[in-house]
């Protein structure tokens, strides 16, 4: 058993768990943040993607203990003051989700992708970057559209701010 302390969505949190506890289970069970999902056992589906110290990671393939001391952002941490984050808003506007199960991981992956590529994203890059996120409902068509739209919008906002 270990006492784990980390920052999650801007708040410092602690919990006691087995050393073998995965980060995703710590987030879901110790913290009650059930937006992060588990969809496979082999780290391929991406339903569990969160950000650790600003980068997308698969929380099903990291021990909670490994993440101790880090800063984690989950899907619950994106919307501010009741306003959807632009990536979330784009998924809604472009019908980039159906059953919603892969959605948190998709959104977190999309956000990381946009962070790295900015508004230069093109369709081929988005599709390649989604290798680690499986969706069974949408055929990806509208997810790709949503990410491109969000990248454009966020790029535009960034440019306007500069």
């Amino acid at each position: 058993m270990a006492k784990i302390t980390m920052t999650v969505n801007g708040r410092q949190v602690s919990g006691v768990c087995d050393d073998r506890t995965l980060l995703v289970h710590f987030i879901r069970e110790n913290l009650g943040l059930t937006g992060t999902h588990v969809g496979c056992d082999t780290s391929q589906c991406g339903a569990c993607v969160v950000h650790m110290d600003g980068q997308s990671v698969k929380s099903c393939s990291i021990l909670a203990a490994q993440a101790a001391g880090s800063s984690i952002t989950t899907i619950e941490g994106l919307a501010q003051n009741g306003e959807l984050h632009p990536v979330q808003a784009a998924f809604k506007a472009h019908h980039g989700l159906q059953c919603g199960f892969c959605t948190p991981g998709m959104v977190m992956t999309a956000l990381d992708m946009i962070r790295r590529h900015g508004s230069d994203l093109d369709e081929a890059t988005v599709r390649a970057e989604l290798e680690g996120n499986i969706c069974r409902c949408t055929g990806y068509h509208n997810i790709v559209k949503a990410i491109l739209a969000a990248a454009h919008e966020m790029g535009g906002v960034r440019q306007a701010a500069e």
Binding site: G35, H37, V38, F91, K92, H95, G100, F101, P104
Partner: peptide, 18 residues
């Protein structure tokens, strides 16, 4: 646009394992 999207997009969906 879908009424149900907000909860899925903000991590507030309620699936059985939740």
């Amino acid at each position: 646009p879908r009424k149900e999207d907000r909860r899925f997009l903000t991590g507030k969906g309620r699936y059985t394992d939740d």
